[in-house]
C-alpha cells in the first residue's frame, strides 16, 4: 500500500534526522549499566513457602499437596466448595501423573476440552492448568499457552486451578523469559483477577476467573 509505505519512510527519515543530532555518543550494544542482577533463589522449602505466601497475598488460595491421597482429598473438596459441575483440561501429559481425569469423573464432573466452542468454556466451572514454571519472588506462574494449554483454559472458567511441580520453581523472571521468549504467546499469572477502580476497594474476579487456586504438588 503506497500510502503506508511513505508513512514508514517519513517516520524513519524523521527518526534518523533526530538521532543524528544527539551529542552523546551512541552506545551499542546495551551497556552494562542497563542491566540488573537477577535474584538468587533460596533453598527449595524456603522457595515453596515464599510462593505460597505471595500467592495468598494476591488473594489466591495456595497450598502444598504431598501425595496422591492428599491430592484426591483436596480436589474433592474444591469440587464441593466451588460447586464444580464441569471442568476443562488440555492434553498436557502431566495431568496423568495426578490421575485427574479419573478423579473428576469419580466426582461426577463433566470434562471439556479447551478446543470446545468458547461459549461452552464460558459456562465451565473449573479450568485446570499445569504451570510451566513458577516465580516465588512475586507469586507468579508461567503458562506457555502455545504448548497445548490455550489461554482460554485459565481465563474463561469461573475457577482456575494451577498445578505446580516444585522442581519448576525459578529464581527470577529472567529465567521464565529464557524459557518462553521464543513462544508466540505466553502469560504470567499472579493471583486473582482484580481491580480497585471503584473507590480503591479491592474486588476480585473482574473479567478473569473469580477464584484462583494454586497447588504445589510433590
Amino acid at each position: 500500500m503506497s500510502k503506508g509505505k511513505s508513512a514508514r519512510e517519513e517516520i524513519f527519515a524523521k527518526m534518523r534526522l533526530a538521532l543524528e543530532s544527539f551529542s552523546s555518543s551512541p552506545i551499542y550494544p546495551l551497556p552494562a549499566s542497563a542491566k540488573f542482577e537477577p535474584r538468587v533463589a533460596g533453598g527449595s522449602d524456603e522457595e515453596i513457602e515464599k510462593m505460597l505466601r505471595e500467592v495468598t497475598r494476591l488473594s489466591g488460595h495456595a497450598r502444598r499437596i504431598q501425595g496422591r491421597a492428599e491430592f484426591a482429598g483436596a480436589l474433592g473438596n474444591l469440587v464441593k466448595t466451588e460447586e464444580v459441575r464441569t471442568a476443562a483440561l488440555s492434553d498436557h501429559p502431566r495431568y496423568a501423573d495426578y490421575g485427574i481425569v479419573d478423579l473428576l469423573k469419580s466426582f461426577g464432573v463433566a470434562i471439556l476440552s479447551p478446543d470446545e466452542d468458547k461459549r461452552r468454556l464460558e459456562d465451565c466451572d473449573l479450568g485446570i492448568t499445569i504451570a510451566d514454571a513458577a516465580l516465588p519472588e512475586t507469586g507468579t506462574i508461567l503458562l506457555r499457552t502455545t504448548q497445548g494449554q490455550p489461554d482460554v483454559l485459565s481465563l474463561l472458567p469461573r475457577v482456575h486451578l494451577a498445578l505446580v511441580a516444585p522442581e519448576t520453581l525459578l529464581a527470577d523472571i529472567h529465567d521464565a523469559f529464557a524459557m518462553a521468549k521464543a513462544d508466540r504467546h505466553f502469560v504470567l499469572v499472579s493471583g486473582s483477577s482484580r481491580t480497585a477502580d471503584i473507590e480503591k476497594v479491592l474486588t476480585l474476579g473482574v473479567h478473569g476467573p473469580k477464584s484462583f487456586h494454586l497447588w504445589i504438588c510433590d
Binding site: 505471595e54 494476591l58 479447551p114 478446543d115 519472588e137 512475586t138 507469586g139 507468579t140 499457552t145 502455545t146 490455550p150 489461554d151 482460554v152 518462553a180 521468549k181 513462544d183 508466540r184 504467546h185 505466553f186 502469560v187 504470567l188 499469572v189 499472579s190 493471583g191 486473582s192 483477577s193 482484580r194 480497585a196 478473569g208
Partner: peptide, 20 residues
Amino acid sequence: VSGSKITAYNTFITGVRKDG
C-alpha cells in the same frame, strides 16, 4: 504504579498463534 510487585496478568504476544 500501585505498590504491587507484579500485576495479575502479563501477556506476551508475538504475531499470530494457533488458538489465538
